[in-house]
Design a protein around this nucleic acid. Structure first.
Length: 329
DNA sequence: TTCCGACAGTGGGGTCGCAAT
DNA sequence: ATTGCGACCCCACTATCGGAA
């Protein structure tokens, strides 16, 4: 039998000090794991002691191996094995015989991770990798009570990187400087982790998410109707000028307070017009069109390949920019 | 008393599968 | 064949409420 993770032989916990060994609880490989989640922070911080990993833009994956059986689960405990058979197969030898790993499945577009590549449009599968960054169970022991640093050490014993399986490097240092560096490289952001914290199931302030996001001014060309408890409007339909035409850029439906919604509705009402101002077809039944005069400042993560904003949120209206000057940056 | 964290609810792009047209 | 819808994946954000401080 070809092998395999170093953990296959010997006691993987041999190097742990006694007080940490006392935290290990005996149990079988868990049936389901709720992955630990980070809290989003907007201000870069420089508190010492944190550990930083690249934020990978892919699909969260809990990988469970129990002997011959390997399972890949999504954040909501749905099976991912069928979508990523190569990763599952690789783990059958690369992972320790009984373990639970936490990681992210990603695909690359050049040097950057691309969520869209992962979404297998048209059936052509992208080459996918599993970046493991944590170990929750190993050799019959629940390791979640251990501090992150100890789990990182055990991770080296729990998985042997190679092929589609990779480990996630981490760094320590000044958070603000590391984030600036990450954004320069075109990364999505960073995950900051407290090295002395145990693994929590669900959201925890011991992990922080720092994002590199883009901003851009866009023209408001219409809006959708509110639903449920929403008041005034649902989302703004946005565009930018290109070659004398108004190109459609997608919608933004979050980021406004109730007061902002009321204000927007009041300002958009008088601009109402019968037809769409966009040069592109906008499939939006029941939209209200307006003359493209208002300019909104919008933050988002990136442009999708269809020319839409990804993860857009409304920041405010700009009265200082003429709508005619708004172009895609 | 005030403040904070967790949750529900509303909004986004994209893909897939299925039912209705 | 096309369209619409919901369920997934990835999310951001506001408003609310109960418990902590």
């Amino acid at each position: 039998m070809p092998v395999s993770a170093p953990a296959a032989a010997g006691d993987p916990f041999a190097t742990l000090p006694d007080e940490l060994r006392a935290l290990l609880r005996a149990e079988s490989v868990p049936r389901r794991v709720e992955p630990m989640a980070a809290v989003l922070v907007h201000e870069p911080f420089s508190e010492p002691g944190w550990l930083f990993e690249r934020k990978l833009d892919g699909i969260r994956c809990i990988a469970l191996r129990d002997g011959d059986r390997v399972r890949l689960r999504s954040r909501n405990d749905l099976p991912l094995d069928g979508r990523f058979p190569g990763i599952a197969a690789a783990l059958a030898t690369a992972a320790a015989p009984r373990c639970a790993l936490d990681g992210e499945i990603v695909a690359f577009d050049g040097a950057r991770t691309s969520f869209e590549r992962l979404q297998s449009r048209g059936g052509r599968p992208a080459r996918a990798f599993l970046y493991v960054f944590d170990v929750l169970h190993l050799a019959g022991r629940d390791t979640t009570a251990l501090p992150l640093r100890a789990r990182k050490r055990l991770l080296r014993a729990a998985v042997a990187p190679g092929g589609p399986i990779r480990t996630t490097p981490h760094r320590t240092g000044d958070g603000a400087a590391l984030l600036a560096d990450a954004c320069r490289r075109g990364w999505e952001g960073l995950i900051a982790k407290r090295p002395d914290a145990p693994y929590a199931h669900g959201r925890s302030a011991d992990w922080r998410k720092l994002k590199c996001s883009a901003e851009q001014e866009l023209v408001v060309g219409g809006y959708t109707a509110p639903r449920g408890s929403r008041t005034d409007l649902g989302a703004l339909l946005l565009g930018y000028h290109e070659g004398g035409r108004l190109r459609y850029a997608g919608k933004v439906g979050t980021g406004f307070t109730r007061a902002a919604l009321r204000d927007l509705a009041a300002r958009l009402g008088p601009l109402r017009t019968g037809a769409s101002p966009f040069a592109d077809p906008v499939r939006e039944a029941g939209a209200t069109w307006v003359e493209p005069r208002l300019v909104a400042q919008v933050a988002f993560t990136e442009w999708t390949r269809d020319g839409r904003l990804r993860h857009p949120r409304f920041l405010g209206l700009r009265d200082d920019t003429p709508a005619a000057k708004v172009v895609r940056e």
